[in-house]
Simulated scan of single mutants.
Amino acid sequence: MAGPSGKPDPAAALRLRLDKWLWQARFFKSRTIAAEVIAAGHVRVNGTRVSRPGRDVGEGDTLTFPQGARIRVVRILALGQRRGPATEARALYLDLDPGTSSPDPLE
């Protein structure tokens, strides 16, 4: 992505759309479902409610969102390059809920 000067912006590579990250980390089965949850205002980034699926997130951001009957609280550790297997997806975040053992979110 180019910055105002037309040159590539190195900081842009360190961010990813919220809906895409939630999908890559395997919290939702599709980006469409992730986008709907975000657009409904059910997701918080660093404690602030967001309603734009295209909101950028990066390493260190904390996300709070519903998943089934649970409320998930996770910290982004990495952005990832693709939607890989569950073992790869688990390396993208740290589950901040001390009562869970971070099982595969889609099971």
Rank of each mutant, 00 (worst) to 15 (best):
G54D: 02
A89M: 10
P98V: 00
D95N: 07
D56V: 15
P8W: 00
V73H: 12
A12D: 06
L14E: 12
P4D: 11
N46A: 04
V45H: 00
G41D: 00
V73M: 03
V57M: 06
T87K: 11
A34C: 03
G54M: 07
V73E: 15
P105Y: 08
A35M: 03
I71R: 15
P66F: 08
A69D: 10
R70H: 13
F65M: 03
P53R: 04
P4T: 05
T32D: 08
G54C: 10
D56N: 13
H42I: 14
T87N: 09
D104C: 14
G84T: 10
S102L: 14
R31P: 13
I76W: 00
G60A: 07
I71P: 13
V50Q: 01
T64M: 04
I76T: 04
G54N: 01
A39I: 02
E36Y: 02
T100Y: 15
D9N: 13
G3L: 10
V50A: 07
G84M: 00
A39V: 01
V57C: 05
E88N: 09
R31G: 12
T62A: 09
L22K: 05
D95G: 08
L96W: 13
W23H: 08
Q67W: 10
I38S: 08
V45E: 01
L22G: 09
V43W: 02
R31K: 05
A13H: 11
D97V: 05
A78S: 11
L106E: 07
D56P: 14
P98R: 07
P105A: 11
L16G: 08
T32G: 12
Q81P: 05
T64I: 04
T62R: 02
G58R: 06
Q81L: 14
L92F: 04
T48Q: 12
I76L: 03
Y93I: 03
T100S: 15
S5E: 09
D61V: 00
D97T: 04
R72V: 03
E59A: 12
T48G: 06
Q24S: 08
T100R: 15
P53Y: 01
G60M: 01
G41Y: 08
D97R: 11
E59R: 14
R72I: 00
R52S: 11
R82D: 09
D104K: 14
L106Y: 02
V74F: 02
G60W: 02
S51A: 13
L96A: 09
L14V: 12
A25W: 04
R82G: 09
Q81V: 15
L106F: 05
Q24A: 02
R15P: 01
G47R: 06
R90N: 12
A89D: 07
G84D: 09
T64S: 05
A2P: 14
G3W: 01
L106K: 08
L96E: 03
R26P: 02
M1Q: 11
R31M: 06
L22H: 09
A91T: 15
A25K: 00
G58M: 01
G99I: 11
P4M: 01
N46E: 12
